[in-house]
């Protein structure tokens, strides 16, 4: 799992560098997110701009993270490409995650 981590105040920004997120990478994605939540990070922005494909297994990893975080925190997703945005839309995950067109928009929203 290729993840670039950056802090913006209390916000953690994770840029996922893998072009494909599927069942072969979902366990590592889940672990990467859960590990950071366990360390106390409660506001996480996931930059999906490099991700051209995501399947239900990877979506499951994101759901595991949002459940681990619970109501105390927020996971935002930003810069989704069309196929990924479609997956979020048809599975209605755009109601579960805070969705933003850009990372800057997500930062503004979560910092407010």
């Amino acid at each position: 799992m290729n993840v670039l981590e950056e802090m913006n105040g209390e916000l953690m920004i994770l840029k996922l560098r893998d072009q494909r997120l599927d069942a072969s990478t979902a366990p590592a994605l889940r672990e990467a997110l859960i590990e950071r939540i366990a360390k106390g990070h409660q506001s996480i922005i996931i930059d999906l701009s490099d991700v051209g494909f995501m399947d239900s297994s990877a979506l499951g990893a994101l759901i595991a993270a949002v459940k681990k975080l619970g109501p105390v925190g927020t996971i935002a997703v930003a810069a989704m490409r069309t196929p990924v945005a479609r997956l979020f839309s048809v599975t209605k995950m755009d109601r579960v995650f805070s969705v933003h067109p850009t990372v800057a928009d997500a930062v503004r929203s979560l910092a407010a």
Binding site: D55, S56, G60, I63, K67, K92, R95, V96
Partner: peptide
Amino acid sequence: RLEFDIKDIENLSESGRGLSL
């Protein structure tokens, strides 16, 4: 099969969407 209760995220399934997709 992709419907869920938005107020019950705790019980949101992490899998089982493949066939419907």
